[in-house]
């Protein structure tokens, strides 16, 4: 076979593989939405789930998911941003910085189920919280920290040195420069990164099963110490418990809702990114 022919075949193969990847994605999204969208009635979204009889909805799970994701971001963003600022603006090459970087990378590689074990022993048991939204959110926050640190550091490093120098040349201190010149200029990228992290928290479940638990309080409450089953955990639990005749219906609806939420987050990221591009273009 001639080199030309091989070249052709290889290109076709590679292109076909890329097509296959698209097909897999299309199949997953398509099947989830086709099976799940019909389930997503107003009733399904606004009624409580039931362990005993069919016909339950996911209202508490939606509430718990929003609650836990928000709480976890409230914990993780200040710490992650602070560490990102430290790494981008202060850290000098040396042992301590290498240690912090190694810790960040290691933390990023820890399987989420291990975070779950850790959260269970620390928050649920040692701290005596039991299954709680706070414990779940705190564990989720630690899981998300490395991602937030990385995107913060990158966002801060991407700010042109000129802007820093301009601020320093005006006699601003380093900290004033960070808060007034650097972070405002990095806000687009930071928002993108935080949205990415929130999207990840949204779909996370292994961390939450034994920290936030698999049940919801009987009434609507903002109590952080109440247990809080999220959507992703619910999708798993209805299958694992398998006690309901309409488990498949609920799972389909929950999966479709999760996918729609994820698509919304992706669109949000795209929006932030476009806004960032516009701002940069405006600055010439």
């Amino acid at each position: 076979m001639s080199a030309k022919r091989i070249d052709q075949i290889a290109r076709w193969t590679v292109t076909a593989a890329a097509g296959l990847i698209l097909l897999v994605l299309g199949y997953i999204l398509g099947s989830v939405l086709i099976n799940g969208l019909p389930v997503l009635s107003w009733h399904f979204l606004t009624s409580r789930s039931s362990n005993l009889e069919p016909g339950g909805g996911i209202s508490m799970q939606i509430f718990n998911t929003i609650y836990i994701v928000t709480l976890s971001m409230l914990i993780a963003v200040p710490i992650g941003l602070g560490a990102g600022v430290y790494l981008a603006e202060y850290a000098r090459p040396g042992r301590l910085t290498s240690l912090i970087r190694l810790a960040t990378e290691s933390l990023a590689s820890v399987p989420s189920i291990v975070f779950g074990l850790f959260g269970m022993i620390v928050f649920a048991n040692a701290a005596g919280l039991g299954f709680s939204r706070l414990g779940g959110a705190a564990t989720l926050a630690i899981l998300n920290l490395p991602l937030i640190v990385r995107v913060s550091e990158e966002a801060i490093r991407a700010v042109p040195a000129d802007l820093r120098h301009a601020s320093l040349a005006l006699g601003a201190t380093k900290e004033q420069t960070i808060f007034s010149a650097v972070l405002p200029a990095a806000v687009g990228r930071l928002a993108t990164g935080v949205t990415l992290a929130a999207g990840r928290a949204l779909g996370e479940s292994a961390v939450l099963i034994a920290t936030a638990g698999m049940s919801s309080p009987r009434y609507l409450t903002f109590d952080p110490l109440a247990s809080g089953e999220t959507l992703a955990v619910h999708l798993w639990a209805v299958n694992a418990e398998n006690s309901l005749s309409d488990a498949a219906r609920i799972a389909n609806g929950t999966a479709a809702f999760l996918i729609l939420a994820m698509l919304a987050v992706s669109l949000g990221i795209g929006w932030f990114a476009r806004r960032l591009d516009r701002r940069l273009a405006g600055q010439g």
Binding site: A169, L170, A185, R279, Q283
Partner: peptide, 13 residues
């Protein structure tokens, strides 16, 4: 001792 730079570098404000 203030400074003005080669390229205009206004803050994003």
């Amino acid at each position: 001792v203030g400074m003005v730079f080669q390229r205009p570098n206004p803050f994003p404000k």
